[in-house]
Amino acid sequence: MDLATWVDAFLDHLRVERALSPLTLEAYGHDLARLVAHAEAAGITTVEGLDQALIGTYLVALGEAGMSASSAARHLSAVRGFVRFLLRERRIERDPCALIERPRVGRRLPKVLSFDEIALLLEAPEQGTFKGLRDRAMLHVMYAAGLRVSEVVRLRVADIERRKGIVVALGKGGKRRLVPLGEPALAAIDAYLEVRGTHPRSAATQVLFLSPRGGALTRQAVWKLLGGYARAVGIGKPSSPHKLRHSFATHLLEGGADLRSVQALLGHANVVTTEIYTHLADDHVRAAYRRAHPRA
Score class of each variant (00 low, 15 high):
residue 206 Q to W: 11
residue 113 L to Y: 13
residue 166 I to V: 14
residue 234 G to V: 05
residue 182 G to M: 14
residue 204 A to L: 15
residue 212 P to L: 14
residue 204 A to K: 14
residue 154 R to V: 06
residue 183 E to L: 11
residue 193 L to D: 01
residue 197 G to R: 09
residue 69 A to H: 05
residue 88 R to F: 08
residue 219 R to A: 09
residue 35 L to N: 04
residue 91 R to N: 02
residue 11 L to S: 10
residue 37 A to P: 00
residue 92 I to R: 00
residue 3 L to P: 02
residue 25 L to C: 06
residue 14 L to S: 02
residue 52 Q to E: 13
residue 127 Q to S: 15
residue 20 L to T: 08
residue 152 V to L: 15
residue 187 A to W: 04
residue 266 L to P: 03
residue 142 M to K: 04
residue 233 V to L: 00
residue 168 V to K: 14
residue 267 G to A: 07
residue 42 A to N: 02
residue 73 A to Q: 05
residue 274 T to K: 11
residue 294 P to S: 15
residue 257 A to N: 03
residue 51 D to R: 08
residue 12 D to Y: 06
residue 30 H to C: 00
residue 283 D to W: 01
residue 187 A to V: 06
residue 36 V to M: 00
residue 286 R to C: 04
residue 186 L to W: 11
residue 289 Y to T: 03
residue 231 R to T: 11
residue 101 E to D: 15
residue 265 L to F: 04
residue 154 R to W: 08
residue 257 A to L: 02
residue 238 P to W: 14
residue 35 L to T: 08
residue 91 R to M: 07
residue 128 G to F: 12
residue 148 R to A: 08
residue 201 R to I: 10
residue 63 G to Q: 07
residue 161 E to M: 04
residue 143 Y to H: 01
residue 184 P to T: 14
residue 136 R to I: 12
residue 212 P to C: 13
residue 41 A to K: 08
residue 261 S to W: 04
residue 164 K to C: 07
residue 94 R to I: 11
residue 226 L to A: 05
residue 225 L to N: 06
residue 104 R to V: 02
residue 58 Y to I: 06
residue 29 G to I: 09
residue 76 L to E: 12
residue 177 R to P: 15
residue 152 V to P: 01
residue 89 E to L: 08
residue 270 N to R: 10
residue 71 S to K: 10
residue 96 P to V: 14
residue 254 E to D: 03
residue 239 S to K: 04
residue 151 E to Y: 08
residue 78 A to I: 01
residue 118 I to Y: 14
residue 222 V to R: 00
residue 9 A to Y: 09
residue 218 T to H: 00
residue 59 L to Q: 02
residue 141 V to A: 08
residue 150 S to G: 14
residue 253 L to A: 06
residue 48 E to V: 09
residue 123 E to Q: 15
residue 57 T to K: 11
